[in-house]
Amino acid sequence: MSRSQEAAIGRPTDVAVPRVGFGRWFRKHKLEVALVIPLVAYVMVLTVVPILDTFRISLSGRAGNSFPSAQNYTSIFASRVFRTAIKNTIIVSLLSLSMELVLGMIVALTLHAKFFARGFVRTVALIPLGVPTIVSGAIMLLLFSRSGYLNSLMFVFVDLVNNIPGVNLEFQALSWTVAGGWRTLFTVAVADMWKVLPIVTLIFLAGLQSISEDVYEAASVDGATKWQRFMRITLPLLVPFITMAIILRAIDAFRIYELALVLAGRIEPVLGTYIGGRYLPPTNDPFTAASASIVLFGIIMIFIVAYLKFVAGRSRSA
């Protein structure tokens, strides 16, 4: 091959993998390489390296000379607070995930139906997306505390119902956030759900819009009821969208931090607040924080792999 052909002009944007030789490929795609390098370098230096570094920290002994050591892991698993945090994280995540999926589906079905002022309702339904997470935490605090507005609403409701002759309900003001246990975790899950419901709804709505109207028409001609159409057509066709929603949301749900920090604080720790609490002053313990964050990553991975393997895999073959 002659020198002139070596420098031949390729399809300008066809960044094919080097086959002929790296030097030649590089000369041809200098510009392209220059354009990707900043992103690649950034992701390497400020994502990949820190992940590996945190992993290293998690295996480092406090004395500093005993690498690798599982000491951090054994000590966190020995801690009752940490075990509670794991349990709470899983409870909150699964709770908010399942509420989001069910409600998201209902809202998506609602917004998919044609009705008066649907455009307006769709816009309003997106509002929580625009509320900062920390603000939604503040809001939930206003709602769920002992002198909170949820109690106010409940009183209004009870009074209304009691207007009906013969009905006499009693209502005791409840404190949700500081109660501890299930009630607090439930509050965190509800807060999370309120905030992200629009995303789940949007994903499902995209799925619903991807199903062609004639499939439903064919099904109703075949005599399927509304419920059957939903179970036999809508749900199966939505599987990829449901999978996407679950994976996207599960990742975020397990990482929940601000809401738990504001609503549950030290009463019911989740992994996010546990890690934050260890790392930040006054504790200042990066070793525990690092190993706990690796455990959190492990939980996310296990969930996704298990989901893809047992749930998504099975429903596809069915």
Binding site: M1, Q5, A8, I9, G10, R11, P12
Partner: peptide, 12 residues
């Protein structure tokens, strides 16, 4: 045609 245009690499 694309080789005449310079949009396609000329192998030889």
């Amino acid at each position: 045609l694309r080789m005449i245009a310079g949009l396609e690499e000329i192998t030889s």
